[in-house]
Structure formats: C-alpha cells, structure tokens
Design a binder for these strands. Structure first.
Lengths: 141, 141
DNA sequence: GCTTGACTTCATGTCGACATGAAGTCACAT
DNA sequence: ATGTGACTTCATGTCGACATGAAGTCAAGC
C-alpha cells in the first residue's frame, strides 16, 4: 500500500513534463532534493513521490525560496522542523508585507501628478516617516 | 522654491544613516541610480532628493526588485513609464500570489499529521491538480 | 550495428549585486 | 604636518543556481 500501481518516468520524461532540462533534475539530486530509484541499468526512475517533490520544489522556488530552504521543507527528519516551518511562514509574511509597501509606492507613482517620484510631496512625506522611525528591512536575498 | 533649506550629507554620513557601506552608494551611482552633486573638492554631496531615492531603492530592493527595475521606477523620463509601472504591479501581484500558495503549502505541512510532505494525501491531491492543469509559473528571478 | 538516451566525473562559464583590496591623489581639520 | 575621510581606476572574489561542454561508458530498440 505504499506505492500505488506505480507509473515511473525517466529523467527525460520528467524533465519535459515540467519543461526543465535534465541536468536541472540531476542538480537537484546532487544537492539532496531528490533520490530517485534506479533501474537495472542504473538509470533514474522517478515515481509519483518524486513527481510531487518536484512540484513542491517548483512552487516554492517560484515563491523565492532557496534550494536549501526547500530541502528543509522536504526533509521530514529534521528535528526542529516545526520551528523552521514557522520561521518560513514568518519570512513569507514579512516579504509579502514589504512587497505590499513597494506596491503602494508604485501605485502612488502611477496616480501622482508629479512624474518624478522624488519630487512628489505626498510621496516624500510617506518616505520621511520611514526616515525618522528607523525600521529598516533586512536583506531579503 | 525648488530645493528647501537644503541640508546635505557626505557618502559616509548617508551610508551610516542607512547602515550601508560607502561603496554600495558609489556602486548605485555607477549603475545610474544616484547622481549626487559634488562640492568644490569633488566630494559627493547628497541632498534630500538623493536621500529619498535611497529610501526608495531600499524599499524596492526589499521587495525583490533588481536595480535595473528600480532604475526604471526612478527614471521619470522613461517613455513607456506608465506601462512599465503597471507591469511592475502585475509582477508584484503574481509573486505575492505565488508566495500565498507557498504559504498555504507550508501551513498545511505544519498542521498535517503526515510528517512527510510527499506522503500527505490531502497535500498530494492539491498538488496533482496542478499537474493536470499545466499552469506553471515563470521564473521569478 | 547504429542511433538514442542515459550514465559518470570534471571543469568552466554566467548573472546580479556587491565585497574587498591595492595604489595612489587630494583636501580639510586639529 | 598628520590623520581622517574622500576621491579615482582596476582587478579579483563571493554566492546561488544552474548552464555548458568535454570525454568516455553502457544498454535497449529498430
């Protein structure tokens, strides 16, 4: 009952399914994100599980996570998993909030009559609040 | 009426105000984000405008924008400025949505009894929807 | 039997945004 | 006059996530 009927895919098949290059899948394997079975000839055989993992990787990469972070997500054996996951949530929230601020800024730049961002009074006021109360965001990268 | 009383700062002063290294400010100048005045001795003098620009840069960097993108934001002279700004908004929205999906995924991983993400049935179902309807996100980077 | 696809290791390149350091000049303040 | 901070150019390194290619092996399908 562990693995269902169990269709499997080769690197090439899986790669084209997700529109990736094969060496990307091998790279992810190199860094420990995937551990596909091998057939009698030593070729990679990816099952449903690996397919799901690839989907998870893509989703979280798209959300700006590093492979290292994703590794923790996927590693069920991590001791402080719970803590790490919550930290990740907090991280996501923080980043979304910063993007929200950037969004407001850009939206204002669109509506504002003053074409030069640096010369719009409303805009400056908003920013200068930030300059007094020094609440500067950490590096997002 | 253009520039108010006009306090100015040196590189060092501005850098420490924003907790940056001086070479970062010079780097941003190299790539065209800043154009500070010079004093009689050729030293950079940053005014209120530049200070605002630095704040804008930091905000948007924190939101994941590249310096190149920020340059467009700050360049009032760009012809297709309006289009670019709206594209940026759309980009932000798309990314926030992807982060939202990642968030849901992570939250589920926290609550779910199945510790291994790849083996949680609910989770898999959600993902496999994505596998059928091929709606894959572009590179975020 | 030959192509196709997969395998291996190893090395090197790319991109963005700096980081770091050398090497030398210049101006202002104590 | 000495130290401090600023200036310049030029070169090289760092990090993450691959990209690209070489060089050689191996196995299955037509």
């Amino acid at each position: 009952m562990k693995s269902s009927p169990g269709a499997t895919w080769s690197v090439g098949e899986l790669a084209s399914r997700f529109d990736l290059a094969t060496h990307v899948l091998r790279h992810w394997e190199d860094v420990g994100l995937l551990k596909p079975d091998r057939d009698s000839a030593g070729r990679r055989r990816y099952g449903r599980d690996e397919l799901v993992r690839v989907a998870v990787i893509l989703r979280n990469k798209a959300a700006g996570m590093s492979l290292e972070q994703i590794a923790i997500l996927l590693d069920a054996g991590a001791p402080d998993r719970h803590r790490v996951l919550e930290a990740h949530l907090a991280d996501l929230d923080r980043r979304m909030q910063e993007m929200q601020l950037s969004r407001q800024m850009t939206e204002h730049a669109l509506r504002c009559r003053a074409h030069d961002v640096a010369n719009c009074p409303n805009f400056r006021t908003g920013i200068e609040d930030l300059l007094e109360g020094r609440s500067w965001p950490g590096d997002w990268h």
